[in-house]
Design a binder for these strands. Structure first.
Length: 442
RNA sequence: CGGGGUGUAGCGCAGUCUGGUAGCGCAUCUGCUUUGGGAGCAGAGGGUCGCGGGUUCAAAUCCUGCCGCCCCGACCA
């Protein structure tokens, strides 16, 4: 993409409403625009990141055996009356009346709807286990939205729902998601720590929050530092291996880890002083097992092998990609801007032509751009007629992993500078060597 | 929802106390000169001063009602 033809509205000054670093950088780097309190447009650069995150989430959900579908954002109040949550949910739920005076709502979550879908079609234990998910916009009318997309009213959520015949099987389904989440966050470039969580108003008795550590995190967390060095389950993990999966989960829950709500001073005191970490954290995922809470209320029953009909055991599993985008920035930035982990970067390479109009520079850039693009790299080519300083500042701000700096001075010696945004390391290469490096390596 | 703040050009702000018909920096546009870390000079465009009502010869400024947005607290992916 040529920057001169792209839509990247970057801001030099920070809009005053943005307090935390991720919100500031998302506005400045042209990722989002606030439309109203807690409502954001995703500009092209931001949408690229959001889509990359979604793609990783999808791959890992699918790998773990979950199946994607898509439910509407607007739901009928009747469904929520069945579960009893229409009255219980309170003002956070945005209620809408349509032209026929029917009571509708903008979905804050989808347990009721997925349960309705399930009960309509699934009647036998032979169709279990089943895990259905979608990635859809949710709306929760937060009393006080803040921190940009970290706590917005409308937010994107991947929510998966598992259905099993009994608790043992449901635990396995829970473990699948547990492992999928570990892999998902690791692939996105984050170190997540599962922490025992309160199940809250959603009900149930088994729940973990996945927390990443960041100085500006919303909640206070306490954990053993070894979690930060645990190996992430491999891509070829056998998700049908019940015992193997359980062992992984056991390991990842063996050490102390809790948010302030679930914090136990006594247990924490037993963690060796040198290993105890007290830090700020951001919740990026939350998984629940809640048994038959909805299936009983809504009549989602299947026939068991014994000929007995029984309500299914359910769990739900959420990740907020729109929040994750902000969380990644909180965890990965410097004074000059965002530092995207490779896996979610909006572009792979920023190609800076320091002197547009100089024959040699234009030619070298054209060659590099063509070769990298052909090799499948996403290249943002800064071909604007701007001064070098402005180009460096833009490239740093938007945080693209590789910066290729092309100018007449280097070219005179046959050299092009390749710079790594995250580490600042620089290499001087010929045009051809640079192309090789970026087409083979990345 | 309780407490606090704020609203003036795309962004950041001054002007409000003490009424006299709107200004600064950046950005934008034109021209020339520049070009290896956010350029210089000259010129130009852009604002119903959040909205309504009132006071006054005259309101960004005073009075009043409303709205938006932000921060702190209680609640949440």
């Amino acid at each position: 993409m040529r920057l001169s033809r792209y839509f990247l509205p970057i801001l030099r000054d920070t809009p005053k409403e943005a307090e935390i670093v991720s919100h500031r950088l998302m506005l400045r780097a042209g990722l989002i625009r606030q439309q109203s309190a807690g409502l954001y447009s995703w500009l092209p650069m931001g949408l690229r990141v959001l889509n990359k995150i979604n793609a990783i989430i999808r791959e890992e959900q699918n790998r773990a055996g979950a199946i994607e579908l898509l439910m509407p954002t607007i739901q009928s109040a009747d469904l929520w009356r069945e579960s009893g949550r229409y009255d219980a949910y309170g003002k956070e739920m945005l209620r809408i009346t349509d032209r026929h005076e029917r009571e509708m709502l903008y979905g804050p979550t989808n347990e009721e709807m997925i349960t309705d879908i399930f009960r309509s079609y699934v009647k036998s234990y032979k169709d279990l286990p089943l895990n259905l998910y979608h990635i859809q916009w949710k709306f929760r009318d937060e009393v006080r939205p803040r921190f940009g997309t970290m706590r917005s009213r409308e937010f994107l959520m991947k929510d998966a729902y598992s259905f099993d015949l009994d608790q043992a099987s449901a635990t396995h389904s829970y473990n699948k998601m547990f492992v999928a989440y570990l892999r998902t966050f690791a692939r996105i470039g984050l170190k997540s720590i599962p922490m025992r969580a309160d199940t809250g108003p959603i009900g149930g008795n088994l729940s973990h929050e996945f927390i990443i550590l960041a100085n500006t995190g919303e909640s206070e967390v306490f954990c053993h530092k070894n979690y930060l060095d645990f190996d992430i389950p491999a891509a070829d993990t056998d998700f049908d291996d019940v015992d193997g999966l359980q062992k992984t989960v056991d390991k990842w829950t063996s050490l102390y880890a809790a948010t302030s709500e679930m914090h136990d001073e006594k247990a924490y005191a037993e963690v060796p002083a040198g290993d105890a970490v007290s830090a700020r954290g951001i919740e990026v995922g939350h998984i629940f097992y809640f048994g038959t809470k909805y299936s009983e209320a809504m009549g989602a029953k299947v026939m068991g092998p014994d000929g007995q009909e029984r309500p299914v055991h359910m769990g739900s599993y959420g990740i907020g990609p729109s929040r994750l985008t902000a969380a990644i920035i909180e965890a990965s930035h410097d004074e000059n801007g965002i530092i995207w982990p490779d896996a979610v970067a909006p572009f792979d390479v920023a190609l800076l032509n320091l002197k547009v109009g100089d024959g040699a520079s234009d030619e070298a850039c054209a060659k590099i751009y063509k070769a990298l693009t052909a090799a499948g790299r996403d290249v943002l080519y800064d071909d604007r007629d701007e001064r070098p300083g402005a180009k460096f500042a833009t490239a740093d701000l938007v945080g693209i992993p590789w910066q290729v700096v092309v100018g007449p001075k280097g070219l005179a010696e046959g050299k092009i500078e390749l710079k790594r945004r995250s580490t600042g390391e620089k290499h001087e290469l010929s045009v051809d060597a640079l192309i090789d490096r970026l087409t083979v390596d990345a």
